[in-house]
């Protein structure tokens, strides 16, 4: 995460409201992960189930139609691995990856 000046109590909207939509794009969750999903493109049928099920919207569809993981927002929950019928996704331990 970039080093920004954090807002003081007088600047933060009252009651800690978040007034701008989509502010979670500022939140890097990659440090939460122990395992990360790796997609074997040769097995992927492009069914889109991982894209639907990912609670963080961390699965992105590239212009050429490939499915990839945006690792800034992937928290490593493994839901995509379970959702993938042709077993194209494998959760791989971070340090060994």
């Amino acid at each position: 995460m970039s080093k920004r000046r954090l807002k003081g109590w007088k600047e933060i909207p009252m009651g800690g409201m978040v007034t701008e939509p989509g502010s979670s794009v500022e939140f890097d969750v990659s440090a939460w992960r122990t395992f990360k999903p790796v997609i074997d493109q040769s097995k992927c049928t492009k069914c889109g189930l991982c894209w639907i099920y990912c609670p963080e919207a961390a699965i992105v569809i590239k212009e050429d139609g490939r499915y990839e993981v945006d690792l800034t927002f992937c928290k490593g929950c493994g839901i995509c691995e379970r959702a993938c019928a042709p077993r194209a996704i494998t959760m791989v331990k971070e340090e060994s990856a």
Binding site: G8, W9, I12, G15, G16, M17, V18
Partner: peptide, 23 residues
């Protein structure tokens, strides 16, 4: 006027948010 309430206040923010009510 849409906004999110009851959000997570991590250590960088909780203190300031709490202080608003103290003030």
């Amino acid at each position: 006027l849409a906004y999110s309430v009851g959000v997570v206040g991590p250590p960088e923010y909780y203190y300031e948010m709490k202080y608003q009510a103290v003030d």
